[in-house]
Design a protein around this nucleic acid. Structure first.
Lengths: 220, 220
DNA sequence: AACCGTTTGATTGTCGACAATCCTACCCCT
DNA sequence: AGGGGTAGGATTGTCGACAATCAAACGGTT
């Protein structure tokens, strides 16, 4: 037997692939909030039948990304200010728990990897590449949760991040000026390295509060 | 206009209804862990075609309750000890955040309503009705998260609770002796009333740790 | 007897078509 | 002109059938 390095063949199902495509399209704003998803049209452009497409859409409906209205179709959700606040409340719950896990595990190794993402952000800022900056920002938080090695936290967080990305894309102009957030990310990373859980909680809360302020018109 | 009490007519989609049925069946153990879901057979007994059923199953797959293997079918997940630990880790993340929201809102009113559930548990114990006790236990935690009024926390928690219920059902014998948990619930409630967030965090963590100990064979 | 290749049965994956429903635009009536 | 009703078009909801794939049983060979 040639080593156990070869992973089991996990043939992904078609609805899974379609769902991922749709998630990306929603996150990138190709499918605008409120827009209806025409099944026939979408299925043609994806090269599949309506069956698998509908199954994929059901997944996104379950995630809360699509809104299904009987006999009318499915629509991309529109995020209100309340939604943004709730979104970041949920993200905070997940990321806080993830950070605690990292601290309980190997905070040094975790901090090193997080620092890579911070460097990416820094490089993006120097290039003036706001798209790359947003990507690195998202990547930082995704990595933080991945480091927790908790399947459920990761799954919940993935869902929330698609919504986050959607908001960032929709309000890119207002969100562009977040160069100073670099310091926040770096401080979070170093506080994780120092295994100071209580302080990480505070920093994450502030971090999220800032984002909400930037993404909402009125503040509550 | 005869008052705005009449809620908008929200006709639920068929896959939604089927998904709920399946969730209940999984939570109650009617569909055993590891069991394959035969599409033709299930669709017949549900009185629908395979299409809507497949759409419903995709939802549960997204929730992590079903495991889909291409060209082989979908199976009810089997929860390992690691899964139980991860499940309660995720639940703790959500319920902790929910408790914080309740404290930030109206802790008095919240505690009153939670106390009702504690009383239900107490009554169930006196009757020796373990099934009702489990139900009240679950209802307590569901109410706690509902009181947060956070759609996303509620949605994530619902998913986690189906898994929890599944575990409780599968290991009912081992889980039956949780009469002493009554005090834990009551203490959590009163600490919420006192708005002592830090202490609620600790109590919830202990509460979850106890449950994990009871639901797993080996401890890590 | 053990092993490999083949066949068979069953199940899933996909598709196209029909029925039900809804929105829009038009027409008629007041 | 405004309002209500109706016909038309389009989209979704549902179903049945065919193709693709897999697991297990069978048979042949060494």
């Amino acid at each position: 037997m040639p080593g156990n390095l070869l992973r089991p063949v996990v043939q992904e199902t078609t609805p899974s692939l379609i769902a991922r495509q749709l998630r990306r399209a929603i996150g990138d704003g190709e499918l605008a909030p409120g827009q209806q998803l025409n099944e026939m049209e979408l299925s043609r452009s994806l090269g599949v039948s309506r069956g698998p497409l509908r199954e994929a859409m059901q997944r996104l409906t379950q995630e809360g990304l699509l809104l299904s209205v009987r006999n009318r179709g499915v629509f991309v959700i529109e995020v209100t200010d309340d939604d943004v606040r709730d979104l970041y409340l949920a993200r905070n719950a997940v990321e806080r728990a993830a950070a605690a896990r990292v601290i309980a595990g190997d905070p040094e190794a975790g901090a090193d990897r997080l620092l890579e993402k911070v460097d990416e952000m820094s490089a993006a800022i120097e290039r003036g590449d706001t798209a790359a900056l947003t990507e690195a920002d998202v990547a930082f938080h995704e990595l933080l949760v991945e480091l927790s090695e908790s399947p459920r936290l990761i799954r919940m967080h993935d869902t929330l991040m698609v919504e986050t990305r959607m908001c960032m894309t929709a309000l890119e102009t207002r969100y562009a000026s977040h160069s100073f957030r670099l310091d926040e990310h770096r401080e979070i990373t170093e506080t994780i390295r120092a295994a100071d859980e209580a302080r990480v909680d505070l920093l994450l809360l502030d971090h999220m509060r800032d984002a909400v302020m930037r993404l909402t018109t009125e503040d509550a």
